[in-house]
Each structure stands twice: as structure tokens, then as C-alpha cells.
Design a protein around this nucleic acid. Structure first.
Lengths: 182, 182
DNA sequence: CTTACCATGTAAGGCGTTACATGATTCA
DNA sequence: TGAATCATGTAACGCCTTACATGGTAAG
């Protein structure tokens, strides 16, 4: 497993504080983490298997409420791998915004189409903002309990700030487009 | 070719205003577009072939200064495909920030590591900002020449706004982290 | 003369998604 | 009883990157 792959690091990061099942990992990745790193079931279970193969994690079966779960735990080798990854500089910070793409090429189409994309993007942003603000509020209260909480707060603040910037930009752009006469 | 693929739309978008070679397309994608959609040579030439196969574009050879180039041109079918894609809502707006990931999991490591990632991210942002500001400045002057320029300006403004937000966040986060006592 | 840039491509393989497939439990 | 949630996985396939491979031209 090459160092270029990131999902393994995300999973090891999650496992570094607690044992988890694949399902629980997916849940984590569908909440906070989804804002800056998303993954599907397929990739999570595959990565989990690779992690075990490479001895970065161990798995064990457990029965809870009559249901069988597979619980994963990080190994010392896995912790070392995570430590190394954390200590080297980030390579890629990538934005893949289809909205921006459609707006970029939208100049030759009708203005109403660009306005619709802007409206749509604004709505999605408005919908997400309260969720992120709740994270910020909650984390701010417990930031002194552990450095981990403090780091989580920084990420939540990042989210809050950019989402507010998206909103500002949508409003300014809508105005610019509406006032534009060709 | 499914509608989920986006690179074909990017290329068709570029071809919608002018004929281009694969090399020129790569150049475009390494300048403005790289901020919200990146691609490698491999994927560009492959997509170009698919575009021709599907009759969304035609290719012809030309000799310029003794060098052979392959020039691509969009077809009417390609324009229609682009029109349809532009008119439907954006699906994914994805952020993949390794920096954020490393900060998210950095709580259990030494504080200096998180600070280094912040510093690094700040530096990259500071380096890019003047380039983006130049785009904004240039596009603002010619925005009334065509709706296309106006749309380009919106995208440049988007970049300028978020990069400034990144900067603000870096500074606030550095302060929060430095003042943090565990 | 050599570096940078112009110019095009292939092949291997990694990464990840979607869709499919299954089945138990909990709660209304 | 039926919907939501818990829970795990596979298979096919698409997308894209990296590395490789080649060679011409322009400018200093």
C-alpha cells in the first residue's frame, strides 16, 4: 500500500482513538469527515482488508445483540504508519466543484442557467451551515478537554468560514449577473 | 460515455469557443481551471479519443512550423451534449484537502506538527493569491466584452474569496493553537 | 549546445464508485 | 408488519495518475 493512498490514513486515524467496525467507520465518514474527505462502503471494506493484510490493523469477530460484527483495532505498526504520514507535508489540496465548472462554461449559455446553478449552490450551502455551526458550538465547549477536540474545532471553524464565504460569493455573483447587460 | 464523467465536459467546454490541440488543452487546465478541476496528459488524450469516437469532436492534422499537431474541433453533437450537461444541476462539489485531514488527526501528535501544516498551507495560499488577483483584475476590465468574460470573472472572484478565507483561517488557527495549553 | 518548451501518446495499475446481494434487529 | 437502521461484503467497471517513450524546435 503506497503512501499516496489516503483512505487508509483516514481509517487508521479513526482507529487510533477507538476500535470500530466498518459500518461505524462509514458513519464517521458520512458526518464530519465528509466535508473534506468522502468514501463509499466499497472502498472502506476493501481498505480495511488491506490494512489487516499489511498488519496495520487486526480484526476480530464479536456478537452484540445477536448480531455479528467485525471489530477493527490499530496495531503498533499501524500507529507508526500514521505517525509518519502525519509528519510529512500534505501533497494535494484539491477542489472539485462541478458548480464552478458549470459556471465557468456557462457564459455561452443563457444567463438564467448560471443563475440557477448559483441559487442551487446557495441553497445547499444554507442547508449545511447550521450543521457545521452546531459542530463549532459543541467543540468550542470541550476544546480544553483534549488537544484532539481543539484540532477538531479548527476543522469545524474552517468549514464554517468557507461555507460563509460561499454564501457571500453566491450573493455577490447573483447581483453581478443580474445587473449584467450584454 | 456516461454523463458522470466530467473531463469530457471540460474539454468540450474549452473546444466550444476555439479549436485546440491536446497540448493546449493541458495548458488551459494547468492555469485557471486547475483551481477547480485538474487533469493529467494521460486522461486528456484518452478523453479526446473517446470524444472523437463518440462524434462529439473531430480531429485533423496540421503542420505548423514543421511540427505536426492534431487539432480538435467540437461537433454539433458535442455542443448539444455540452448544452445538456450545462442545463442539469451540479451533482458533486468536493473538497479533498490533505492538510485538513492531517490537522483533523493531528490532535494526538505534537502541536508543532499541526503548526507546521498550517504554516505550509498558509505559504501555498500566499503564493497563489497574487496570480488569482491578477486574473480578477484582468477580467474585471474586459467583463463587458462578452458574457463569457463575466462568467470567468465570477470564478476568479470565487478563487480570490476562498483563498483569502484560507489565509484568515490559518492565522486564527495558528493563534488558537499557540495559545492552547493542555 | 543545451535547456526549455512544443507535441503526442501508451500501458499498467491503483483507486474508488455503483449496483448488487443478504440478512438481522429495533421501533413505531 | 413494515420501515429504518445495523451490518458486511463482492464484482464490474470507469476514471485517472504515473511512468515510460519519443522527437522536434526555439532561444540563450
Amino acid at each position: 500500500m503506497a503512501i499516496e493512498k489516503k483512505l487508509d490514513c483516514v481509517i487508521l486515524g479513526l482507529l487510533s482513538t477507538e476500535e470500530l467496525t466498518g459500518y461505524e467507520i462509514k458513519k464517521c465518514m458520512s458526518s464530519v469527515i465528509k466535508y473534506f474527505w468522502s468514501a463509499s462502503y466499497g472502498s472502506i471494506y476493501q481498505t480495511l482488508n488491506q490494512l489487516v493484510e499489511n498488519e496495520y490493523a487486526t480484526k476480530r469477530e464479536a456478537i452484540e445483540n445477536g448480531r455479528t460484527k467485525i471489530i477493527y483495532r490499530i496495531t503498533e505498526k499501524g500507529r507508526e504508519y500514521l505517525r509518519v504520514w502525519l509528519s510529512i507535508p500534505a501533497e494535494k489540496n484539491e477542489l472539485r466543484f462541478e458548480t464552478i465548472l458549470k459556471l465557468f462554461f456557462g457564459g455561452s449559455a443563457d444567463k438564467s442557467i448560471s443563475l440557477r446553478h448559483l441559487e442551487d449552490f446557495k441553497q445547499r450551502t444554507v442547508d449545511e451551515l447550521p450543521i457545521i455551526e452546531k459542530y463549532v458550538e459543541d467543540l468550542d465547549k470541550i476544546k480544553h478537554e483534549s488537544p484532539t477536540n481543539m484540532n477538531y474545532l479548527l476543522i469545524a471553524l474552517f468549514g464554517m468560514k468557507i461555507f460563509n464565504t460561499y454564501l457571500e460569493w453566491c450573493e455577490e455573483s447573483e447581483k453581478l449577473l443580474k445587473d449584467y447587460n450584454d
